[in-house]
Simulated scan of single mutants.
Amino acid sequence: MAGDRVRASDKEREQYATMVRAGMTEGRLTLEEGEERLAQVYAAKFRDELAPLTADLPDGGGAGCSSCRRRRRSSCGRAGGTWPGTARSWPWSRWR
């Protein structure tokens, strides 16, 4: 029933997007799979739409990306660095 569903917040969507990006960076998802899942993450309106998008990843469906926290988020690039296979720096790396 739609009345019982809880809407996802921007912060929750970002947590799942971080997990998808980690899966792409680690080679668990292809670029195409990752982009498709990211589009679905950002389009999700309810929390129960998010977990299936990361269920097959190591931290599958959990809120947040614990593998990124263990590595101080380096696998997602949020601690600064470059996207694999390019010399392009993440835009937020200059603020850290």
Rank of each mutant, 00 (worst) to 15 (best):
T86A: 07
W92Y: 11
D56G: 10
R71C: 12
G62V: 09
G77L: 05
D56H: 15
G61R: 02
R21G: 05
R5F: 09
C68L: 03
R96A: 05
E49G: 00
L57E: 02
A43N: 07
W83L: 12
Y42D: 07
E36W: 09
G27H: 04
R47I: 15
G64V: 03
P91E: 01
S66F: 14
A39K: 14
M19N: 08
T54W: 02
E32F: 05
L38A: 11
A8T: 03
S74V: 08
A39C: 06
G34R: 00
R72A: 13
V6A: 10
R73P: 00
S67M: 14
A44Y: 05
G64I: 06
R5Y: 06
A51H: 11
V6L: 12
G27W: 08
G80L: 03
E26P: 01
G60Y: 03
G64L: 01
E36F: 08
R70K: 14
G62P: 00
G60F: 05
W83R: 12
E33Y: 02
R96H: 11
G27M: 08
V20G: 01
R37E: 04
W83G: 03
R28M: 10
L57P: 05
T30M: 05
A87G: 15
G27K: 03
G60Q: 04
A22T: 13
D4H: 12
S67F: 12
A43D: 13
T30H: 03
S9E: 02
P84M: 01
R7W: 01
G81P: 02
E14K: 12
A39F: 10
R70I: 11
R28L: 14
M24D: 05
G3H: 14
G62T: 12
R28K: 10
S66M: 13
A39I: 04
Q40M: 11
R13T: 07
A55N: 06
S74E: 08
F46N: 09
R72F: 10
A44T: 03
W92C: 10
L53C: 01
W95E: 13
R7F: 00
T54L: 05
P58T: 01
E36K: 15
C65K: 01
R7N: 05
M24V: 12
M24K: 10
S74R: 09
T86Y: 01
D56M: 12
P84L: 03
W90P: 00
R21A: 14
P58N: 05
S89I: 06
R13S: 07
L50W: 09
G64R: 02
V6D: 12
R7D: 03
A39N: 10
R47V: 14
W95M: 11
M24F: 11
D48T: 02
R88S: 10
G81Y: 01
